[in-house]
Simulated assay, not measured.
Amino acid sequence: MYTGIQHLHSFLSYLVLLGLLISFVAALAGWFGNKNFGDKDRKLGLLGLIPTHLQWVIGVILYFVSPKGIEWATEGFMKVSEQRLFVLEHPLTMIIAVVLITVGYARAKRQIGAGNKGFKSIAIFYGIGLILILSRIPWNAWLGN
């Protein structure tokens, strides 16, 4: 079970990054192109939101079934960089990123027909979320090194 969830979590990471990147670039184009934010643009924002939430749910499950998750939270884990990454830094940073992406989408969907404010909300919040996600991906484990 653990291996299957781990592979799903790794595979879904590609979809999360792709969805966030598409939503972010589309939002930047709409914001700087001074376009009107519409329902079609709101739905495009879902490309970043839905895989991110799904990834978060799978990550929470993985945190509790993985030997590198909650089991590593023993005395002195903060002194070991790999343990600190998997137990604290990665989960906490991803939670913050998911919250920011959710706030960005929630703010944007209320801006339909109000100029380019929806694009601005998605661009800023998804952009910060994307940076946070990229900063705490466990690259060595993800790339198989």
Rank of each mutant, 00 (worst) to 15 (best):
S81K: 14
G48D: 04
E82M: 11
L49C: 01
T74E: 15
P51H: 03
L47T: 10
L54V: 13
Y126I: 06
A141Y: 15
G127F: 00
I22R: 03
V65M: 08
G38A: 12
L18Q: 02
L62C: 00
L49G: 00
I95N: 05
F77M: 00
T93P: 04
L8Q: 01
G38S: 09
L17G: 12
K120I: 08
F37L: 02
G113F: 05
V98M: 09
I137T: 08
K109T: 08
T52N: 01
G45F: 02
I112N: 00
A97S: 12
L100C: 05
L15A: 15
E89M: 10
P91E: 05
V98E: 00
H7N: 15
K120A: 15
V98I: 11
L100Y: 06
M94H: 11
V99C: 10
S121W: 01
R107F: 09
F119S: 04
A97Q: 06
L44Y: 04
Y105K: 10
W56I: 10
F119G: 06
V60K: 06
D41P: 06
A29E: 12
H90I: 05
G33V: 09
A114M: 13
A108P: 04
I101T: 01
L15T: 13
E82K: 08
L62W: 11
K109S: 08
A27T: 05
L44S: 12
F119R: 10
D41S: 09
I137C: 02
L20Q: 12
I112L: 00
M94R: 05
M1R: 11
R42Q: 14
P138A: 07
I131E: 08
W56Q: 12
D41W: 01
N36W: 01
L49S: 05
Q55L: 08
E89T: 11
V99W: 04
L12V: 13
F32G: 13
T102A: 07
G113P: 07
S10E: 15
A26C: 11
I61W: 11
G113D: 09
I58S: 05
W72Y: 14
H7K: 14
A114G: 01
S23G: 14
A73T: 06
Q55H: 13
K79F: 13
A106C: 04
L85K: 13
M78F: 14
Y63D: 03
L47C: 02
V80Q: 11
V98Y: 02
A106H: 02
L130V: 07
G69C: 10
V98Q: 01
Y2N: 12
L134V: 09
F37C: 03
Q111V: 04
G127K: 06
A73Q: 13
G30W: 01
I50H: 07
S23P: 08
K43R: 14
P67M: 02
G104I: 06
D41R: 04
G127Y: 07
G45R: 04
H7Q: 13
N140P: 03
F77H: 07
N36K: 15
R136P: 01
Q111L: 11
I112G: 00
K43S: 14
I58E: 02
L8I: 12
H9I: 08
E71W: 09
L18W: 01
L18S: 12
L46N: 03
R84Y: 14
N34W: 09
